[in-house]
Design a binder for these strands. Structure first.
Lengths: 230, 230
DNA sequence: GAGAAAAAGTGAACGAGTTCCAAATTTGAG
DNA sequence: CTCAAATTTGGAACTCGTTCACTTTTTCTC
């Protein structure tokens, strides 16, 4: 049984994190003073520093929560059924980007990324890099799954392709959170276009597939290698 | 003729920038106080703020110098002759990464990237984003050049491919400056592997080309589509 | 060349994150 | 119940980037 002291500790930590999450979201990261967080969490400033090394550390705790949920959603998607490489990857990307804005505002992401870049060796930086690595690995897993399902060409280096896709996605997400007035839809279609040049060339469609009846031609349709068998 | 005032201004600005560049490199960005820069440049703290909005602004001036030289080197490379898509792209990547460490230490890059992420709307952030955009465009230009030279398949979306390559490169460079003990060679070969999955599929080799005599088989050789004509 | 106006320089003061510490409080053990 | 250990507390002090009211320098005009 957890002693009273430990229960209080856990309670304080939760209060601090909750206060920080709310204030960061409402007043912005810079606009939130440590003193305000302390007030809201009903602890003293010094106590916050007992639980978190610094202000940025509070952010990583929130980021970690968010990314863990995103990884969960991603894993569920991978385990599901997939019609095509393109749609499976597009969907994973959409999951990543849409689910990344539940707890964190775009401004919070800016700061989190900045701190992770600036201080890669602090606990913050290490944890952040670890989350990124897990996301990248998950993209590779999706590609492996697609290969097993016969949707992806056998000779594809899934690690290379997965990293390429994740790095592009990550960079585009960075651009997205940096750019005011950029909608989720816009970034998703930009990413889809970038990925298409790769995906349509590593896709492995059954030769007997017939053109989908109701589909009209799109500017992206090409008399391309997408038609070849593997 | 330049008046006395303007000569003094130019002189002071140069002194400040030179002092900052040297101190940042020697003592690190955080380890360099504004007061120290002022001392070294023989001006007061306030004067620095007449020329640069803040500490980070000093960094962007150095970054801009560096990146402009990088862009020049890149342009010269593009104008030259190219044997293959793979080698032309690999070379451009190498130019970018190697030339990026002339004035800026890895730690300075960390801070520059962090500030650009954190403050995308300040002059710093805008200039940094502009430099990134020019680099991305240059990659696209290389691909267009290669297409004109008949080395790249006709149906390739060079904008999409260029952005994909640049975003991957940029992310890998970020990882590189964040990771101590990562050599330039290591990051270059990691990038080359990631790019290969795309490049070998958009390459357009003449069908009459014969196997290069002295070359031994490498694990990356595949009986792949790299042999097809376009 | 003298005085006024404009531009630029100056450094003490300020703000916010962080550290430190001695006193107060809480908890667990004998 | 009492003592010892662990934590919290609150505030003062520190650091460093940044600001601003004031001074100095330069230029322009008559």
């Amino acid at each position: 049984m957890m002693g009273l002291r430990e229960r209080h500790k856990a309670d304080r930590e939760r209060r601090i994190l909750k206060a920080a999450a709310r204030l960061f979201r409402n007043a912005g990261y810079d606009g939130t003073k440590m003193e305000r967080i302390a007030q809201t969490a009903r602890v003293s400033i010094g106590t916050i520093y007992n639980y978190y090394q610094n202000k940025g550390d509070l952010l990583v705790a929130i980021v970690a929560m968010e990314v863990n949920e995103v990884l969960g959603s991603g894993a569920r998607h991978i385990a599901g059924r997939h019609r095509s490489v393109q749609s499976a990857v597009d969907r994973l990307v959409a999951i990543y980007i849409e689910h990344s804005l539940v707890y964190l505002s775009e401004q919070m992401w800016q700061h989190a990324m900045a701190i992770a870049t600036q201080q890669p060796d602090t606990p913050f930086g290490v944890i952040y890099a670890g989350l990124d690595a897990r996301l990248a690995r998950q993209v590779c897993e999706l590609l492996d799954t697609l290969k097993s399902a016969g949707l992806l060409a056998e000779d594809v280096d899934t690690v290379a392709a997965g990293e390429l896709i994740f790095n592009n996605l990550n960079m585009m997400f960075t651009t997205f959170v940096k750019t005011e007035n950029m909608t989720v839809q816009e970034v998703l279609s930009a990413i889809a276009r970038q990925h298409r040049v790769l995906l349509e060339r590593i896709t492995c469609l059954p030769s007997r597939r017939r053109p989908t009846p109701g589909r009209t031609a799109s500017p992206y349709d090409r008399a391309s290698r997408a038609d070849r068998t593997c």
